Amino acid sequence: MESEGRKSIIDKLIAYHVARAKGGNGLNTVEVTAVDKASAHFGFLFIAEDKYTNGLKN
């Protein structure tokens, strides 16, 4: 069963990228993001529905 958290921006994902930035990396690429339900494979971030975009508003 697929977890809603796997598709959403969650605090754990934000903390991961903040730690990379604090470490001084030169380029931080988040990951593949699905913008259409048909392309939303398991584990991809998903922004085709509003309920998944709250983490992008921080």
Results as ranks from 00 to 15, higher is better:
residue 1 M to I: 15
residue 1 M to F: 13
residue 1 M to K: 15
residue 3 S to L: 10
residue 3 S to A: 14
residue 3 S to G: 07
residue 4 E to R: 12
residue 4 E to K: 13
residue 4 E to V: 13
residue 4 E to H: 12
residue 5 G to H: 01
residue 6 R to Y: 13
residue 6 R to V: 10
residue 6 R to C: 15
residue 6 R to Q: 15
residue 7 K to G: 01
residue 7 K to C: 02
residue 7 K to R: 12
residue 8 S to F: 01
residue 8 S to E: 05
residue 9 I to W: 00
residue 9 I to P: 02
residue 9 I to M: 07
residue 10 I to Y: 02
residue 10 I to T: 07
residue 10 I to Q: 03
residue 11 D to T: 14
residue 11 D to Y: 12
residue 11 D to E: 09
residue 11 D to M: 11
residue 12 K to V: 15
residue 12 K to H: 15
residue 12 K to N: 13
residue 13 L to G: 10
residue 13 L to R: 08
residue 14 I to P: 00
residue 14 I to D: 04
residue 14 I to C: 11
residue 14 I to E: 06
residue 15 A to I: 14
residue 15 A to D: 14
residue 15 A to K: 06
residue 15 A to N: 10
residue 16 Y to D: 03
residue 16 Y to E: 06
residue 16 Y to I: 11
residue 16 Y to H: 07
residue 16 Y to Q: 01
residue 17 H to C: 02
residue 17 H to W: 01
residue 17 H to E: 04
residue 17 H to N: 06
residue 18 V to H: 03
residue 18 V to N: 08
residue 19 A to T: 09
residue 20 R to F: 09
residue 21 A to H: 03
residue 21 A to F: 06
residue 21 A to Y: 00
residue 23 G to C: 02
residue 24 G to F: 00
residue 24 G to V: 01
residue 25 N to D: 15
residue 26 G to K: 06
residue 26 G to P: 03
residue 27 L to S: 00
residue 27 L to W: 04
residue 28 N to L: 05
residue 28 N to I: 08
residue 28 N to Q: 00
residue 30 V to H: 08
residue 30 V to L: 10
residue 30 V to F: 12
residue 31 E to W: 05
residue 32 V to P: 01
residue 32 V to G: 10
residue 33 T to L: 09
residue 33 T to P: 00
residue 33 T to Q: 08
residue 34 A to H: 04
residue 34 A to M: 05
residue 34 A to R: 04
residue 34 A to E: 04
residue 34 A to S: 15
residue 35 V to N: 09
residue 35 V to G: 14
residue 36 D to Y: 11
residue 36 D to H: 14
residue 36 D to F: 11
residue 37 K to C: 01
residue 38 A to P: 06
residue 38 A to E: 09
residue 38 A to K: 08
residue 39 S to H: 08
residue 39 S to Q: 10
residue 40 A to G: 04
residue 40 A to D: 02
residue 41 H to N: 14
residue 41 H to W: 12
residue 41 H to L: 13
residue 42 F to L: 14
residue 43 G to A: 09
residue 43 G to W: 06
residue 43 G to P: 02
residue 44 F to A: 12
residue 45 L to M: 10
residue 45 L to T: 09
residue 45 L to N: 05
residue 46 F to K: 07
residue 46 F to Y: 15
residue 46 F to D: 03
residue 46 F to H: 07
residue 46 F to P: 02
residue 47 I to Y: 01
residue 47 I to T: 12
residue 47 I to R: 04
residue 47 I to A: 12
residue 47 I to V: 15
residue 47 I to Q: 01
residue 48 A to G: 08
residue 48 A to H: 03
residue 48 A to D: 00
residue 48 A to V: 05
residue 49 E to T: 13
residue 49 E to A: 15
residue 49 E to W: 13
residue 50 D to R: 14
residue 50 D to T: 14
residue 51 K to M: 10
residue 51 K to N: 09
residue 51 K to T: 11
residue 51 K to P: 01
residue 51 K to V: 13
residue 52 Y to D: 00
residue 52 Y to K: 05
residue 53 T to L: 04
residue 53 T to H: 06
residue 53 T to W: 04
residue 53 T to D: 00
residue 54 N to E: 01
residue 56 L to V: 10
residue 56 L to G: 11
residue 56 L to A: 13
residue 56 L to W: 02
residue 56 L to I: 10
residue 57 K to C: 00
residue 57 K to P: 03
